[in-house]
């Protein structure tokens, strides 16, 4: 259903492959591209499945395995590191009881690293789906995670 709508929103031309994949990954609650979807997309655009796979695996924002409803990405580059005096990563790991690259058992959260997200003037920073959270402090991180846990953004 979601996929069909997305496919209809673009011209049938192979250069829209990446745009389509980004939409699928974003719009699905578990943020991943399934084998079945790869087949449908490749048939629709008239390209090889292996080509679709090579694109999915090249780009870090795309995934072929199911992820949580909320993808938490912690910035790991130097400007954030220089301003991270309480350890954002550890704080989130503690709050969720998972390690980086894991998903919580209730499928609600996946924890990842990200390269710099261009918020270094308000470092340290993290992203949850399409929202950025900056000038993080330990208290702020705990509150943000709890708000998500309690369903404030569901």
């Amino acid at each position: 259903m979601i996929l069909q709508k997305i496919l209809e929103s673009y011209p049938v031309s192979e250069d829209y492959l990446l745009e389509i994949l980004i939409d699928v990954d974003k719009q699905k609650e578990n943020h991943f591209i399934s084998e079945e979807e790869i087949t449908i997309i490749s048939n629709h655009l008239g390209i090889k499945e292996s080509h679709v796979c090579s694109v999915v695996s090249f780009y870090t924002l795309l995934s072929t395995t199911p992820r949580g409803k909320y993808i938490i990405q912690i910035c790991k580059d130097v400007p954030c590191y220089l301003n991270d005096d309480f350890n954002v990563l550890k704080t989130v790991e503690n709050e969720l009881n998972i390690k980086v690259n894991d998903t919580t058992r209730n499928q609600k959260f996946t924890l990842e690293f990200t390269a710099c997200i261009g918020c270094c003037d308000e470092a340290p920073a993290m992203r949850i789906n399409d929202s950025t959270y900056t000038n993080l402090t330990r208290e702020k991180v705990i509150k943000i995670i709890n708000d998500y846990k309690e369903g404030k953004y569901d």
Partner: peptide, 18 residues
């Protein structure tokens, strides 16, 4: 979609082409 190298001119062109 999360690839720094796509800022390089030809990588960017390839990416625009999907």
């Amino acid at each position: 979609a999360g690839a720094y190298v796509c800022g390089e001119e030809f990588a960017l062109i390839e990416s625009i082409e999907g």
